Computed example of a mutant assay.
Amino acid sequence: MDETRIATALLSGPDAIMAADRNGLITFWNGGAERLFGFSAEQAVGESLDLIIPKRLRARHWAGWHRVMETGQSSYGDGDMLGVPAVRADGSTISVEFVIHPVTDTQGQLLGVAATLRDVTARFEETRELRRQLAER
Rank of each mutant, 00 (worst) to 15 (best):
T8W: 10
L10R: 03
L11I: 09
S12H: 10
G13C: 10
P14I: 13
P14E: 02
A19S: 15
A20F: 06
A20M: 08
D21R: 11
G24S: 12
G24N: 13
L25C: 12
I26P: 13
G31Y: 05
A33C: 10
E34K: 07
R35W: 00
L36G: 05
G38V: 02
S40F: 04
A44K: 10
E47S: 14
S48N: 12
L51A: 06
L51H: 06
K55Y: 02
R56F: 00
L57M: 09
R60F: 02
W62N: 00
H66S: 07
R67P: 02
V68F: 12
G72Y: 10
G79P: 08
D80N: 01
D80L: 00
D80T: 00
G83F: 04
G83L: 05
P85C: 05
R88M: 13
G91H: 11
T93I: 14
T93V: 15
S95D: 05
S95K: 07
S95R: 11
V96Y: 03
I100K: 04
T106P: 05
L110C: 08
A114M: 15
T116K: 05
V120L: 05
F124T: 12
T127Y: 03
R128S: 07
E129G: 00
L130M: 12
R132V: 10
L134K: 14
A135H: 08
